[in-house]
Computed example of a mutant assay.
Amino acid sequence: MTVLRLGTRASALAVTQSGLIADRLRATGVEVELVTISTEGDRSRQPLVEFGGQGVFVAALREALVRGDVDIAVHSLKDLPTTPDPRLALAAIPQREDPRDVLVARDGLTLGELPQGARVGTGSPRREAQLNALGLGVEVVPIRGNVDTRIAKVASGDYDGVLLARAGLLRLGRAGEATEVLDPLQMLPAPGQGALACECRANDDATIHLLSVLDDSDTRAAVTAERSLLATLEAGCSAPVGALAEVAQGDDGDELWLRAVVGSISGSPTIRLSATGLPSEAAAVGERLAAEMLAEGADTLVAVAS
């Protein structure tokens, strides 16, 4: 039997996420071997905005695919550049995990309960901009590292809290450590957050077919709208842009709802808009909402942050 080599980053979260995909493929009768690959984003401890941001966690995996070292690569979709790579096929986007952000804080505190001047860690300009926009008087401090490293900063008292993606905690079995799940009305997630991307070589029809059974149409429509908005704004994954799309039942069938925010790191000004459309027109919905945001001055906010 042919063994499919699945490329993954070496972090605990990446291996766990890749393991979920491997298990689903094994359930279809396919043999899968995980191959760990080191990426620039894993090796560097610089803030993402200082060494490229967009694509730093996926470039090495993609090159391994092209060389034929692996047959499949699994990424956190929010890390994937919006510009397509013609050498590769985004063959499957499985059903999304909870896309919301969470707070992990000392003493079980929520954002509203943190005292003035509390130190909240995040390496995301998107989170920093939206947190500052809430006007809570907390101090946003930079942080890098895996989930263990970030939560340990709270346990040690270096930070009063850290902001993380709930999807990662759920996949690691650590969701109970969050002290608050943040409402998207307060903090919209990164485009694609909570979703996984399964890539293979564009000319590998057999693997494309194998992966296609993992694809979730509602998730693909939602993240297509979010990433289309991001691409039209010409903003990378480290820009202060949040977006969340959902497919819901409307009066005339399924509808796609897209909300987005572009903010200044200082918290003001902030542009928040929404749009609706058909799931089959997801890319156009994202483009249309981005155009409305650009008309409101979003390009200036993205340029200042980049």
Rank of each mutant, 00 (worst) to 15 (best):
V3I: 15
T8R: 01
T8N: 02
T8V: 14
L13F: 07
A14G: 10
T16I: 02
A22I: 09
A22G: 10
L25Q: 09
R26G: 02
A27C: 04
T28N: 04
T28R: 12
T28K: 07
E31A: 11
V32E: 09
L34T: 05
T36E: 15
I37K: 01
S38D: 15
S44R: 10
Q46M: 14
L48N: 11
V49C: 07
V49L: 10
E50Y: 00
G53D: 08
G53I: 02
G55A: 08
V56C: 03
V56F: 04
F57A: 13
V58M: 01
A59I: 07
L61K: 08
A64E: 12
A64D: 05
L65H: 02
V70G: 02
D71F: 01
D71W: 01
A73Q: 04
L77G: 04
K78E: 15
D79N: 10
L80M: 13
P81S: 10
T82P: 01
T82F: 05
L88F: 09
Q95S: 14
R96L: 12
E97N: 08
P99H: 11
R100P: 01
D101H: 14
D101T: 04
R106Q: 14
E113W: 03
P115I: 13
G117I: 09
G117A: 08
T122Y: 05
P125T: 11
R126M: 15
Q130M: 13
Q130F: 11
L131F: 08
L134W: 09
G135I: 04
G135R: 06
G137P: 08
V141W: 12
I143T: 15
R144Q: 15
V147G: 01
T149E: 15
A152N: 10
A155Y: 12
Y159Q: 07
V162P: 04
L163H: 01
R166K: 15
R166D: 13
G168P: 00
G168D: 01
L169F: 07
L170R: 06
R171I: 04
Q186S: 12
M187D: 15
M187Q: 13
P189N: 08
A190I: 03
G192I: 06
A195H: 04
C198E: 07
C198L: 09
C198G: 06
E199N: 00
C200P: 00
A202K: 00
D204N: 10
A206K: 00
L214F: 06
D215T: 05
D216N: 10
D218E: 13
A221K: 04
T224A: 09
A225G: 06
L230D: 11
A245C: 02
E246D: 08
Q249F: 09
D252C: 02
D252W: 03
E255Q: 14
W257E: 12
R259Y: 14
V261G: 04
V262M: 10
G267K: 03
T270D: 12
R272W: 01
T276A: 12
S280G: 15
A282K: 03
V285H: 02
E287I: 12
A290G: 13
A290S: 14
E292Q: 13
E292G: 10
M293V: 08
A295S: 14
A295F: 03
E296G: 00
T300N: 06
V302C: 07
A303G: 02
V304F: 12
